[in-house]
Computed example of a mutant assay.
Amino acid sequence: MSAELDALTVVNQLRDLAADPLNRRAIVEDQGCLPGLILFLDHPNPQVVYSALLAVRYLAECRANREKMKGELGMMLSLQNVMQKSTSPGETKLLASEIYEILQLAGKEEAEQAEAAAASCQRKAQFFLGSNNKRAKTVVLHIDGLDDSARRSLCEAALLKIRGVISFTFQMAVKRCVVRIRSDLTAEALGTAINSTKVMIAQQVVRTEGGEELILPFQEGSEALVEENTDIPDYLPEEESPSEEQDKAVTRVGSITDGMGWLNTAANFLTRSFYW
């Protein structure tokens, strides 16, 4: 196995483990994983960089992680380098910028916490916490037919063809996909892309003012214009063979126990391959 393939595998696994909220504190506290992700941000392969950004974005969702992440050697500088590098795809720069803004605010959050507490009761929970970024928004989709890893791969491929998709995560148990998109992209475009697979049907999940959840079908027969992505690397493949344990590590409640063994393996790889 080549060194680059090893790097792709490791960063892909770290991204999937970071998608589970139960794993986020452990990854940041580990002595090798967070520094390794920072090194991945400077990797020559754009696929590795983008997946590392997704992992860092997940980790930053845990408010308790942000101060440590901001202070980690090389974190803010590496994010700035990705944002400023002329060869970085547009969506990669946007994701790095969003992470940078979240971490920049880390030191101010405690001072503003009391004031924000009253307002937070009125705000609806969102998948990504960086809602102050007016350039991005979150769309929740319910996808009939999202039954297995093969269908998930089809859905990934369809979403990644859309210009303006920043990142996404799947909740397989409830057939949901939470998508972070640019503010100028419509939810209908996501529905059109997923429906084009011919084996899945997407509907949008919204909440009423009373907090009740509604599932709204996209208008039948209408197809939103989808601008295809040409400047973003392919999404990293899911390494699911030969067993189902990796899928469980991402979606099953209590996955921290399953994930820690792989975290140790990842940390050992990072120490062996990247520190010199």
Rank of each mutant, 00 (worst) to 15 (best):
L39R: 14
Q13H: 13
Q13I: 12
L77A: 15
L185A: 01
T197K: 00
K93N: 06
V82C: 02
N195Q: 03
E239W: 11
P237M: 03
R252T: 14
R252L: 12
G32K: 08
V165P: 01
P217T: 04
Q104I: 09
L185T: 00
A114N: 08
E115C: 06
T251E: 12
G145H: 00
T271C: 13
S273W: 07
L263W: 02
A7Q: 02
Y235R: 13
F127I: 08
A266H: 03
E91N: 13
P35Q: 03
A224D: 00
G191C: 00
A125S: 12
L14Y: 05
E220G: 04
A117F: 01
D16H: 11
D16V: 07
A187W: 00
E212P: 04
A266I: 04
R176K: 12
A26K: 08
R272H: 07
V174M: 11
M1Q: 11
G74V: 03
A157T: 10
Q126A: 09
T87I: 07
I201T: 14
N229Q: 15
Q203W: 00
L8Q: 07
P46L: 06
R135K: 14
Q13C: 10
G254Q: 05
T251P: 08
V140H: 04
Y235C: 09
Q84C: 09
K161L: 07
M75D: 00
S153D: 11
R176M: 09
S149A: 15
A136C: 10
L129A: 15
N268D: 13
V139A: 01
L39Y: 06
D42Y: 02
K93F: 02
S120D: 07
P233C: 03
N12M: 10
E238T: 11
G36Q: 01
E213A: 05
V199M: 04
L160M: 15
T9S: 14
Q219N: 10
G261Y: 09
G32A: 15
N133A: 10
P242G: 05
T197G: 01
S78Y: 05
T251N: 13
M1I: 09
N133Q: 13
E115R: 08
A157D: 10
I102T: 10
S196V: 00
A224S: 01
F168D: 05
D231W: 06
L79H: 02
Q171D: 15
E61T: 13
E98V: 06
A150L: 10
K161T: 08
A26I: 07
N229A: 13
F269W: 13
L41C: 02
F40Q: 04
L95N: 05
Q80E: 14
M1F: 10
Y50I: 09
R151T: 10
L8M: 12
H43A: 04
T169R: 09
A193D: 03
N133W: 06
S86D: 13
N45S: 12
I102D: 03
L17W: 06
F274L: 12
V139Q: 02
A60W: 05
G145L: 02
Y235L: 07
A116L: 09
N81S: 08
Y275V: 13
K175T: 04
P242V: 14
S97G: 12
N12Q: 15
V11G: 05
V56D: 02
T192F: 01
T92C: 08
L141E: 02
A150F: 14
S97P: 01
D247E: 14
L59D: 02
V28P: 05
Y50G: 03
E245Q: 11
G130L: 03
